[in-house]
């Protein structure tokens, strides 16, 4: 019995021949840059046409508006023409003039009249959507790409208008992707 017990203990002692655990040094100070993405829709508009390779064609705003500067902003979406036709507008009680500046397609104006460049649209949204802006500043709203550890790389923050259509900011219903097709579902006795 004693021999048995001893050999059992010896066997147990043979376990744990682990290599020493390896750890890499901790993250250093943030060196990577955080930039805010500038989506195409801030500088161009889809034409509804595709090029020879089937890619959708976009027209830069400046292409038309450098020549054509409307004298006033429309009072409703029905008045829009050309590429802007069919624009849907569902955004609280604001109007075109709440944000856009007549005669200049590259800028927006804040409620206090300050002019800001179109690419700084975040500042405009922040005026009304304070909690979202606060969360955004803390990385808890809006999402991002790249590095969580800024000592290892750069980070690109999503712009408000990457996810939200400024004229209709609520998410529109879409068909979900990748339906579950695992065993059980495949066998036709699937999940509810």
């Amino acid at each position: 019995m004693r021999v048995l017990a001893l050999s059992f203990l010896a066997l147990l002692a043979a376990c744990g021949t682990d290599q020493p655990g390896r750890l890499r040094p901790p993250p250093g100070p943030p060196t990577g840059a955080t930039t805010i993405h500038v989506p195409d829709r801030l500088t161009s508009i889809p034409t509804g046409e595709v090029d020879a390779l089937g890619r959708p064609q976009r027209a830069p705003c400046v292409g038309c508006h450098s020549l054509r500067r409307p004298a006033r902003l429309p009072s409703s979406v029905d008045e829009l023409d050309e590429f802007h036709q069919g624009l849907r507008f569902v955004h609280g009680g604001v109007s075109c003039a709440s944000c856009h500046v007549v005669g200049d397609q590259d800028v927006l104006h804040r409620a206090d009249g300050t002019i800001i460049p179109m690419v700084d649209v975040l500042q405009l949204c922040a005026q009304c959507h304070g909690p979202q802006y606060r969360d955004y500043l803390h990385g808890a709203h809006g999402g991002m790409n790249g590095a969580w550890d800024l000592s290892s790389g750069d980070r690109v923050r999503n712009n408000c208008v990457d996810c939200h259509d400024p004229h209709q900011p609520a998410f529109q219903p879409s068909v979900p992707v990748l339906p579950p097709r695992d065993r059980g579902v495949l066998q036709g006795r699937g999940a509810r």
């Binding site: 993250p27 808890a140 790409n145 590095a147 969580w148 290892s152």
Partner: peptide, 23 residues
Amino acid sequence: RTRRGQLPACLEACPTGARVFGN
């Protein structure tokens, strides 16, 4: 990805920014 400092794939793919990852 994350041990190289990168964000997880599911976070980057989220169109609503619902996901928050970090140390």
